[in-house]
Design a protein around this nucleic acid. Structure first.
Length: 507
RNA sequence: GCCUCGUUCGUCUAGCGGUUUAGGACAUCGCCCUUUCAAGGCGGAGAUCACGGGUUCGAAUCCCGUACGAGGUACCA
């Protein structure tokens, strides 16, 4: 297809029929991983970029594998990521229903139309026969393919099978020679030999259509202009082209998007190497960070820009800059990006969004059950201000900040003794610190710091030796926010109490 | 087995025939800042552009093979 042809086709679709219409059509066989949302995101971004429409359709024709609650999971995931749906379940729309099980009659109608036009036929082959056939083919090292047994049945034989009440399905009569060209906007034309294509099933015994017919009928009827789907569909795309031809329908614009791979270099799979999107939510990833990260998975704007707000992404997104080679998703980079987004959050917003994570039960990553301080907004704000630029996820806040809320802290008392110090010098330093702190009028880090620095000099220690000891004494940690601000937030009473305790520990 | 798609630093990528001593980011290493941890700043290392042939004055960029990887090969999507 030449560039001119593309432009022409695109013009017809976008100007002739209105705006671009794209869909996300998951099948409710389980939760969704972020790879699935990545492809949906591209469709969504393009729809928003062009003021087009984004449609959610549920491909539930595999009734046996349908999982309860899956559709809610999709909708929750889309909502979390901020991908609003113009048409679909719940919101409805003029091209519904948006569940394929409810569109059964449509598929049957087109299947029988194809039989009438000679493009399809009824097949009475039993699963046992198909199985035996496939086994025989494999034994002979032949590609397993339907042998077209029923395609060549005479009218009399069809009538006899009918009269006998044999169950049947419908198969598509694939052209027996020639080639099928799949025009793909990302890959260019892909050519397939028709002899490699078999007579696939287009109507199952449960009366529903498999993906091949169902998605295509729906896309056509719903006016879908751009089909973005995973590259695993490339091998069956020629079937879809032939089906379009037989139905006399114009092809949508195809974009076969590369798959997202796991660390094992395998396609992300819910049952093998990919967590549900909701685990990212539970760990405290910000949806805007995941959104940004996902957009960069197989798409790029230029050679340096990586941080995009939602609006910037909508403005910058162009479909032709989607890459064609699949890539492993880099969990480290997501973590980094989440940190960037957390740091960009205004403090009150950070608190508002972190509180629910801290309020979770201890077992789910919340604050310890033993906390003695209430989780009020004022105090939590003062605490989180100190951890703001240190957080990588919202979920880790509770752990990192727990000592601000606990009454008793426990730690390895050996950590009190700094490099070049011993127990008695440490004890001495703590005693001096306690005495100094007792006389401080304004409990403010700007007051505490210079006095503590004087004490360092008085005791002939290095700053790190004194401060390290006090840090451990009041937090039980070796890595904390700046010491004096921490003391200020903790308050005089708690600080003094913990230092007293530490004096006992080192004795 | 057969069919198809893909292949630039460890990872994500820029590059669409000359501006490239192949640019950026994450990770990593070093230095600076510094009371620890982060954050930030500066810098380093890291890619014979999978390999082999062509085409061309000139190729990471175009063509053909090979290798490797992935995907598909169902009354699953």
């Amino acid at each position: 297809m030449t560039q001119t042809d593309n432009l022409t086709k695109e013009s017809i679709l976008t100007i002739g029929k209105g705006v671009p219409r794209l869909r996300f059509a998951p099948s409710p066989t389980g939760f969704l991983h972020i790879g699935a949302f990545r492809t949906a995101l591209f469709s969504w971004l393009y729809a928003r970029h062009t003021s087009g429409q984004f449609i959610l359709r549920i491909e539930d024709t595999d009734t046996a594998r349908t999982v309860e609650g899956a559709v809610d999971d999709f909708i929750n995931g889309l909502t979390w990521l901020g991908m609003d749906v113009d048409e679909g379940p719940i919101v409805g729309g003029p091209y519904g229903p948006y569940y394929q099980v409810q569109r059964k009659a449509l598929y049957q109608q087109y299947a029988s139309q194809l039989i009438t036009s000679g493009h399809a036929y009824r097949c009475y082959c039993t699963p046992e026969r198909l199985d035996a056939m496939r086994k025989a083919q494999e034994a002979q090292k032949l590609p397993p393919r339907y042998d077209r047994h029923c395609r060549y049945l005479s009218d009399e034989e069809h009538a006899a099978n009918e009269a006998a009440g044999l169950p049947w399905i419908v198969r598509f009569a694939m052209p027996l020679e020639g080639e099928t060209v799949v025009p793909d906007k990302l890959h260019g034309d892909m050519v397939f030999k028709n002899t490699d294509l078999d007579d696939m099933v287009i109507l199952k015994s449960n009366g529903l259509a498999p993906y091949h017919l169902a998605h295509l009928v729906d896309d056509h009827l719903m006016g879908i202009t751009h089909v973005l789907r995973g590259e695993e569909w490339i091998p069956s795309a020629p079937r879809h082209v032939q089906l379009h031809k037989a139905l006399g329908w114009e092809l949508p614009l195809y974009y076969h998007v590369p798959n997202v791979l796991g660390k094992d270099k395998k396609k992300l799979s819910k049952r093998r190497n990919a967590p549900s999107w909701s685990e990212y939510q539970e760990q405290g990833f910000l949806p805007e960070a995941v959104f940004n990260f996902l957009a960069l998975l197989g798409w790029s704007y230029d050679d340096k820009t990586e941080l995009f707000s939602r609006e910037e992404l909508i403005r910058a997104f162009t479909i032709d800059r989607i890459g064609i080679s699949s890539g492993i998703y880099d969990a480290d980079k997501l973590l980094w990006m989440n940190g960037v987004y957390i740091r960009q959050l205004p403090l009150d917003e950070l608190v508002r969004r972190t509180l629910p994570y801290m309020e979770r039960p201890e077992a789910e990553g919340g604050l310890p059950n033993s906390i003695s301080r209430p989780l009020d907004v004022e105090y939590t704000t003062r605490v989180l201000r100190l951890e703001h630029e240190r957080l990588k996820t919202l979920g880790e806040a509770a752990h990192v900040v727990s000592f601000f809320f606990e009454d008793e802290i426990s730690y390895d008392t050996a950590l009190l003794i700094q490099k070049g110090m011993d127990a008695s010098r440490t004890r001495n330093a703590l005693v001096y610190t306690r005495d100094l702190l007792t006389y401080i009028q304004d409990w403010d880090h700007t007051i505490i710091e210079p006095l503590m620095r004087e004490l360092v000099a008085t005791l002939g220690l290095k700053a790190g030796q004194l401060f390290g000891t006090v840090r451990t004494a009041i937090s039980g940690r070796t890595a904390t926010p700046p010491l004096f601000e921490m003391m200020e937030v903790l308050g005089r009473d708690v600080t003094m109490k913990r230092i007293e305790q530490a004096i006992i520990y080192v004795s």
